[in-house]
Design a protein around this nucleic acid. Structure first.
Length: 479
DNA sequence: TGTGAATAGGCAAGCTAAAG
DNA sequence: CTTTAGCTTGCCTATTCACA
């Protein structure tokens, strides 16, 4: 790779700010590495405007004349550069210790040039910048609890990170180091958050750019618990669409910027959308986080509805109902599928329409039956159910797609594909008419604005799972 | 008819409960 | 206690959709 053919001094004298300089340097890397190369290692840089917005939310509580900052996965140092700019313009420190952790060999020569620039720039403002680049595979190094020299637990006033996002295999070495924080499928970014939280001093701050997926879902439960028990959320900025283009053109990720402070002091959470001109909402921690789930705040009128829903005391089980996932996983049991109409109907997600079950579908590419010798547990008996699609809302679909289902006239049994969830009676011996009354009331509520607002706030990925449905608060239904 | 956006569907793999 | 089967879950991407 060609090293930048110019000296940092020249740019200092030209009056370039750190962020402007870093943007030039980043461009060299972007021209050199293809999108797919960068995607493999999760190397995406923070866009200048976003980095500035983020940096402007930095809070430093240190009373000393010296602070320590660490940037986990610094890339070319855009976040650090913007943070330095903001801190020097708004605080009075004599010494800033800046540790930049980065392992991408292709970016290191550029990062060195950035560090050189930052040192000169700070010096020109009478601040001594003591910075070092640490080429440590921070999540790939064991043991994580103690961290590695030169990283020390609780030694930084400010932790900043735009970490890589990629799945970590459950049987991988990295995964084995993090049993205490990984629940099921892990993503690298959660480990950066975990380590970042551990690196914060008492009273220190942290800012992370990550996907929103950690707000709910079982896989992120332990991370949420760690975050909630050690820190307070200062502010959350979320992108409203996964197509929000603010990192790089092609990156499609629903992202959020989480800022934390390590303190027990209760405070309101500032909430806003990325790039929004609106004033931040102020939300009580208790309204944002319920049962270890972070409920994304919605627009004003919807928040009013959400608060009402959250006050309801009943759950699905209080009406004698359970909810479960369809038991047929086609790729696991292809031998059970059939196209023979004498066998057992198999209901796929596509058959579940808004308020009706449309089965069979002519010309549907999937096999719409399972063989009658399939295991009993995969066969459902005719009864009263509500079938629900697992897929979450979209722009055109504003509520759950589900339907009351009484079974087929011509068949005594049926079966459900994995992407269809079903609500069923725990006690089968209830009078049929009464079952109908209960399920119709539940159905009406499931597609109501109230329930929709709940799922919209709670479900940050593409799926609405059974845990989400079990957690939906119900009012007293008229049954 | 071509293109980018939206979404349904593919699929892996952790977890849990049952079986040995 | 160990192994296995099968239940759930979330992420990724191939397919479909919508619109010019």
């Amino acid at each position: 790779m060609s090293i930048i053919p110019f000296s940092s001094e020249a740019y200092i004298t030209d009056g370039l700010s750190p962020s402007e300089f870093i943007e030039k340097v980043s461009q060299i890397y972007l021209n050199y590495r293809s999108y797919s190369d960068r995607s493999k290692i999760g190397q995406f840089f923070t866009n200048l405007n976003l980095a500035k917005d983020i940096a402007n939310r930095v809070e430093i509580s240190s009373k000393s004349k010296e602070i320590s900052i660490i940037d986990l996965g610094s890339g070319t140092g855009m976040l650090s550069g913007c943070a330095l700019e903001f801190i020097i313009n708004n605080y009075e420190f004599d010494v800033i210790n800046l540790d930049l952790v980065e392992i991408d060999n292709n970016v290191l020569p550029l990062l060195e040039i950035v560090v050189d620039f930052l040192s000169l720039w700070c010096a020109s403002r009478n601040v001594y910048l003591n910075s070092k680049i640490i080429t440590l595979d921070i999540i790939g190094s064991s043991p994580v609890e103690n961290l590695f020299y030169p990283l020390q637990i609780e030694s930084y006033d400010l932790v900043i990170s735009n970490p890589p996002y990629f799945k970590i295999g459950g049987k991988s070495r990295v995964s084995s180091y993090y049993k205490n924080i990984i629940n099921g499928q892990a993503n690298a970014y959660t480990l950066f958050m975990y380590l970042g939280i551990n690196l914060m001093k008492q009273g220190g701050s942290a800012i992370f750019i990550t996907p929103q997926s950690y707000f709910n879902g079982d896989s992120f439960k332990k991370l949420r618990e760690h975050l909630i028990s050690n820190t307070k959320i200062v502010s959350l900025l979320v992108s409203q669409s996964r197509y929000t283009q603010f990192l790089e053109e092609k990156v499609m990720q629903k992202i959020c910027i989480t800022s934390l402070v390590k303190s027990n002091e209760d405070r309101k959470v500032l909430f806003n959308s990325i790039n929004s001109l609106a004033v931040d909402l102020e939300i009580d921690q208790n309204n944002l986080i319920k049962d270890d789930i972070i409920y994304t705040p919605l627009i004003d009128s919807e928040n009013h509805i959400l608060n009402k829903v959250m006050s309801y005391g009943k759950r699905l089980k209080d009406f004698g109902l359970g909810v479960s996932t369809g038991s047929i996983v086609p790729h696991e049991t292809p031998q059970l599928l059939s196209e023979d109409a004498d066998q057992i109907p198999l209901i796929w997600l596509k058959h579940v329409k808004d308020g009706e079950i449309k089965w069979p579908i002519e010309g549907f590419k999937r096999k719409q039956y399972i063989i009658s010798s399939s295991p009993n547990k995969k066969i459902m008996k005719k009864d009263m159910y509500i079938l629900l699609r697992r897929c979450a809302f979209s722009e055109t679909r504003k509520h759950l797609y589900c339907s009351v289902f009484e079974g087929f006239e011509k068949y005594e049994t049926f079966s459900l594909e994995n992407h269809v969830n079903y609500i069923y009676f725990l006690d089968k011996n209830i009078n049929l008419e009464h079952k109908k009354v209960i399920l119709n009331a539940v159905y009406d509520y499931l597609i109501s604005d109230e329930a929709s607002v709940f799922f919209k706030s709670r479900c940050n990925n593409t799926q609405i799972n059974v845990t989400d449905i079990r957690s939906l608060p119900f009012p007293d239904l008229k049954i």
